[in-house]
Simulated assay, not measured.
Amino acid sequence: MPNSHLSPGVPDVSTVWLRVFLEVARHGSFTVAARTLGWTQSAVSRQVSSLEEALGGAPLFDRLPRGVRLTEAGRLLVPHAQAVVEALHGAGRELAALREAAGGRLRFGAFASADAALVPQALATFRARHPRVRVSREEGFTPVLLERLTAGHLDLAVVSSTGGAPPSTYALHHLLDESLYVAVPADHPLADGGPVRLGQLADADWISGSARPEGTLLDVAVRQGFRPRIAHVVGEWTAKQGYVAAGLGVTLVPALAAGSVRPDVVLLPVLDQGAPARAVYAATVRGRTLTPAAEAFVGALRKAAARLPA
């Protein structure tokens, strides 16, 4: 039956017919083509007849006493049939590579401090095992990354939470929980390196990536009973350290970024009772099929997280 969705004049042709046609054309014989395909000669003859009928009834082969020979219509069809069959073979190869995460693409995003150690280690493992996957990466704050994920621009996003309820839109693959530190200048009165409670720094000037603590690491301070006075809004981690070292304030540093702190800044572990560790997740959209490459990268992230210092 012709497909009603096809444009007028476009024949509804089975790819099986084309494959059989090419085998007959290659061997010049229904018998040899049938043997190659593992079919009966009559089955091969029926496939060719069906193709001829679909294409308007013109014969594609002259039936000779010994074998067959392409007609002018058959010679015209050969390159088109080859193009169709090769295109399908190519699609099959690409789909197989995609299933094995041996090809395709991976689009992911991550928040800044995850790029200090977690993401590079995971990406190195992933690239070693899946070198043919095309990888693109974005950096941003968690809310922006989740928006990009929802819009379909990312396959997954490495995001963080300071204890808020995870949005039900996303499937969150837990990677790790990380502790927090307060970064203070080397000459700060508390700079002996001992643990502190955030309340001890309630009167300090704070450096943060946002003018409001909500949705940032400083949300922990709000839950501990005080609203930090944000004196400087600085987004980049290296710049934050410069402000701290200059004595312009203090800032919170997650454990993922602790290894890259400059020597004239002191990190003090936060011991506030009930202050939750920051959770880090690989987020995907709930209900959206995860590509094999994305699944493999989630696995690489989990292995990298397990290797990081506690």
Rank of each mutant, 00 (worst) to 15 (best):
S4E: 12
P8S: 07
P8Y: 02
G9D: 05
V10I: 14
T15W: 06
T15I: 09
T15K: 04
V16H: 11
R19Q: 15
V20F: 08
S29D: 07
F30L: 15
T31K: 14
A34T: 12
A34L: 13
R35F: 10
W39I: 02
A43G: 09
V44G: 00
S45T: 10
S50D: 12
S50P: 01
L51H: 05
E53N: 08
L55H: 06
G56T: 09
G56R: 05
L60K: 06
L60T: 05
D62S: 10
G67N: 03
T71W: 01
Q82I: 08
V84S: 08
L88C: 07
A96S: 14
L98C: 10
R99Y: 04
A101N: 06
G104T: 06
G104V: 06
F108M: 06
A112S: 14
L118Y: 02
V119W: 07
L123R: 13
L123G: 00
A124G: 10
R127S: 10
H130G: 12
S136K: 11
R137S: 08
T142H: 09
V144F: 12
L145I: 13
L146H: 01
L149E: 11
A157V: 12
G163C: 03
A165K: 11
P166G: 05
T169W: 01
L172S: 05
L175F: 03
V184E: 07
P185D: 01
P185W: 11
A186M: 08
P195A: 15
P195N: 12
P195S: 15
L201Y: 13
A204K: 10
W206P: 06
W206Y: 03
A211M: 06
V220R: 15
A221N: 02
G225S: 11
F226M: 06
P228V: 09
R229N: 12
A231K: 04
G235M: 04
E236H: 14
A239W: 08
A239D: 15
K240Q: 15
Q241L: 14
T251Q: 07
A255E: 15
A255G: 00
A257V: 00
V261G: 03
R262H: 03
V266E: 08
L267N: 01
L268C: 03
P269Y: 02
R278H: 02
A282E: 02
L290G: 04
T291P: 03
P292T: 00
A293Q: 07
E295A: 14
A296I: 06
G299Y: 09
L308Y: 02
